[in-house]
């Protein structure tokens, strides 16, 4: 299923993501890594500073509703995979991002912009396997 190429919208969205990452560092002194924020709520995380994390997550979840108020329509997404792929894929995302200490936001944005060698290696690793997985699913096993 083709999707429309949206360079300006994506650039603007990326800039907002960056702005939020910078603002979180300036105010709370924290990396805007969503795996880390979510992980702090799980038992055994050793974290107890939940207030700002909960507020941050609530703000994120509220974004589509705010867009609906501003534009008059709820933003739509398309999920071109089966429920099985969502469940297996999601499970692997959870395991992998925990073992790898981060995901696209923590490593890909916050880490690379600090030129962290760990984040550069992690991002190369998940981009490579993400690409390979989509290639195998769509072109080898036929999606």
């Amino acid at each position: 299923m083709p999707t429309e190429f949206t360079p300006l919208m994506s650039l603007a969205g990326g800039a907002l993501i960056g702005l939020a990452a910078v603002a979180l560092m300036a105010t709370h002194g924290r990396i805007a890594g969503i795996t880390g924020v979510l992980g702090a709520f799980l038992p055994g995380s050793g974290e107890s500073d939940w207030g700002w994390r909960a507020a941050f997550l609530i703000g994120m979840v509220a974004a589509p509703a705010v867009m609906m108020v501003l534009t008059g329509s709820m933003p739509q997404i398309e999920v071109p995979v089966s429920t099985t792929a969502l469940v297996i894929g999601g499970f692997l995302v959870g395991i992998g991002a925990t073992y790898g200490s981060g995901c696209t936001s923590g490593h890909g944005v916050c880490g690379i912009s600090r030129l962290s060698p760990r984040s550069i290696v992690a991002t190369l690793s998940f981009m490579a396997t993400g690409g390979m997985t989509v290639f195998l699913v769509r072109h080898v096993f036929g999606g």
Binding site: G89, V93, G96, A97, Y99, S101, G130
Partner: peptide, 14 residues
């Protein structure tokens, strides 16, 4: 871990 994350991302899109 990052490699496994990438596989999951490629399967689910999330």
């Amino acid at each position: 871990g990052s490699a496994v994350f990438g596989i999951g991302w490629g399967l689910s899109g999330f």
